[in-house]
């Protein structure tokens, strides 16, 4: 074989390799969740411009909602969020409360809610929204088993997400996982507040998050705590008594007392 031919062949091989690698995990942008072990399993964080699924039992719906809201808050804090859901899910597990979102440290001004009548309308709206690159995250909330959300639908969502750079989060409450093209799949349950004296502050969102599918890394199960002030997930505090977050503009208490003593 002549040198020119080998060269052409190598060129072609290189091009094919590039085409195949396109859109693959290795050049995906990732956003760290803040939880060290989970970020390590996710190769640095949650992939942007992909589909992520969150599953939960029926009674854990609020927990899963909180987890999805946390993921959305991590992914794009400043871009509009479209939350698509069915009428039925509002009856079953309550409406998404904007005051509640505020309390989690997220911005309700960026949220546009679409109330779809059925799964078909919800799916179509979500696909439409995913094609709009002005958005940050599209959340599709579907209650119960939905046969419309099959492999084909999931593939369509993935392609739309890749093309526009918008991340899709599927919130599936009361459903069994089916084959899909999602980048990650989580099963979320509520975790206890850390043990402490009853008069101490408790009730920060605690998730028992199980990563059951990860296309580009290992799976795992972690207890994650959502920090509403700083807007990230962390490991639960090992210290039994939670310590109040110290605002940056205030001097540390010990130092301040020391200064007072010197002054007096």
């Amino acid at each position: 074989m002549s040198g020119a031919c080998t060269n052409t062949l190598a060129n072609l091989r290189g091009r094919i390799a590039r085409i195949e690698a396109h859109g693959d995990a290795h050049d995906l942008t990732r956003v760290a969740l803040g939880h060290a072990a989970a970020d390590a399993a996710l190769c640095g964080g949650l992939a942007v411009a992909a589909v992520h699924e969150v599953f939960a039992e029926g009674r854990q719906s609020a927990t899963a909602t909180g987890f999805v809201a946390g993921l959305a808050g991590r992914l794009t804090p400043r871009r509009p969020l479209v939350w698509v859901r069915q009428d039925f899910s509002e009856i079953e597990s309550g409406a998404l409360s904007m005051r509640g979102l505020c309390e989690l440290g997220l911005d309700p001004r960026l949220v546009v809610t679409v109330r779809a009548t059925d799964t078909d309308a919800a799916l179509r709206t979500a696909a439409d929204a995913l094609a709009c690159d002005a958005l940050g995250v599209v959340v599709l909330e579907v209650w119960g088993p939905a046969r419309q959300l099959d492999l084909v639908a999931s593939r369509k969502l993935t392609l739309a997400a890749q093309a526009s750079g918008v991340t899709a989060l599927l919130l599936r409450v009361g459903a069994e996982p089916l084959p899909s093209t999602a980048e990650t799949r989580w099963i979320v349950r509520a975790a206890h507040s850390p043990p402490s004296a009853p008069w101490h502050a408790w009730g920060a969102p605690m998730f028992d998050a199980q990563l059951v599918r990860n296309r580009h890394g290992p799976v795992g199960r972690w207890i994650m705590e959502w920090k509403s002030d700083e807007c990230f997930f962390t490991e639960p505090a090992t210290h039994p008594q939670p310590v109040a977050a110290t605002p940056a503009h205030r001097p540390h208490q010990a130092a301040a007392i020391g200064q007072q003593r010197r002054a007096s």
């Binding site: 909602t65 409360s97 509640g100 989690l104």
Partner: peptide
Amino acid sequence: ESEPPLRPLRL
């Protein structure tokens, strides 16, 4: 600040 959520997420 530094309080757990006082209002529920789903109402």
